[in-house]
């Protein structure tokens, strides 16, 4: 009797275990596939939403500066231009500063100082973007308006060629201010990646530099930087991806004008700022669809940049693994 029970329950128990194994494995697999399909779903839904506008304006959507809700004529050029220029300003300011922070944290700072300073910089990344927005509008913009911008207009304004970038009255808000706020936002991301990449440089390489009487700076510039070039570019592209898609901080300080001005001090707009500002107020199918089309465009641009960044960081990781 007892023997029978054991013989009967063990296979039953095993079958139940196998079933649970199948179920659990299946659940994790479905969840993983869901992540995969999510990206596809985002792309498809954006392009379906953008279709009416794209069918109406075709390539003109990319080349027209006009953005007129009244006559229902929409072109993305001003928004794309603003997105690219603000991101470019942000990178021009953020890359050198992030590089400096990464150098400080890996080579210069005493060991006891590294962690607190590193954490403080990382906390800057945790501050929500809307906070950067109101800080930019109420604190940074007036400061730029009263000090930096008049100085730029007076000193750089009269110069040929680049002078045209610094014309007009100092509004405070505008393309330049948006670029500065974006720079502050991406500094923690770029410096965190650069720090991690610098730490993967083998000590032997650095020590051989010091063995040849190189200064700290020479070791950084001629040993550490060449060794981590791919990873650095990956980190910069990751920051660029963030700057291109950043919404709330830019919306507060860019001025929201759908036009292309030569001057960096003039108000402009970006793709994300246009969407954030106008989407809930957009009346009519074509207006909404044009905004979604802007979103699809932003999706394409950031996807390309982020994908390139991830590929570079992946290559970097592989090389680090193979050299160990």
């Amino acid at each position: 009797m007892a023997v029978e029970t054991v013989a009967a329950t063990v296979p039953r128990h095993a079958a139940a275990q196998r079933l649970r194994e199948k179920l659990f494995r299946g659940a994790t697999f479905v969840a993983a596939i869901l992540v995969l399909t999510l990206l596809g779903a985002i792309a498809v839904s954006l392009f379906i939403g953008a279709y009416p506008a794209l069918a109406r304006f075709r390539f003109g959507f990319l080349t027209q500066e006009i953005w007129n809700p009244v006559t229902e004529k929409f072109g993305a050029l001003a928004a794309v231009y603003g997105t690219l220029v603000t991101s470019f300003i942000a990178m021009a300011l953020a890359v050198p500063i992030s590089f400096g922070i990464a150098v400080f944290l890996t080579e210069l700072a005493p060991v006891w100082l590294r962690r607190p300073v590193g954490v403080a910089i990382e906390l800057l990344a945790a501050v929500p973007s809307i906070i950067f927005g109101i800080w930019g509008l109420f604190v940074l913009a007036p400061v730029l308006q009263h000090t930096v911008q008049p100085w730029l207009i007076d000193t750089l304004g009269p110069l040929p060629v680049i002078g045209s970038l610094f014309q007009g009255p100092p509004y405070g808000i505008g393309v330049l201010t948006a670029g500065v706020v974006l720079a502050i936002m991406v500094i923690p991301f770029i410096s965190a990646v650069m720090r991690d990449v610098f730490e993967t440089v083998p000590d032997v390489l650095k020590e051989s530099g010091y063995g040849l009487c190189a200064t700290t700076w020479e070791v950084i510039w001629k040993v550490v930087v060449p060794h981590s070039r791919t990873g650095m570019v990956g980190g910069i592209m990751l920051g660029l991806g963030r700057a291109l898609g950043e919404t709330m901080a830019v919306t507060f300080v860019i001025g929201n004008a759908h036009r292309i001005s030569r001057s960096l001090l003039a108000p402009g707009t970006t793709i994300s700022a246009s969407i954030a500002n106008e989407f809930t107020e957009a009346v009519g199918k074509l207006y909404t669809s044009s905004l979604v089309a802007l979103g699809a465009l932003l999706f394409l641009i950031t996807f390309a940049v982020i994908a390139a960044a991830r590929f570079m960081l992946l290559r970097m990781e592989r090389r680090a693994l193979s050299s160990v």
């Binding site: 993983a32 992540v35 995969l36 779903a41 985002i42 954006l46 999706f299």
Partner: peptide, 28 residues
């Protein structure tokens, strides 16, 4: 091999602009 693709897609989602996510959920 599937995991390599999923990891890559996940990394892209991780840094995708949040306003795009908003548009996606709006459409859906």
């Amino acid at each position: 091999r599937l995991s390599i693709v999923i990891r890559f897609v996940n990394d892209v989602l991780l840094s995708a602009p949040s306003i795009i996510i908003g548009l996606f959920v709006y459409e859906m």
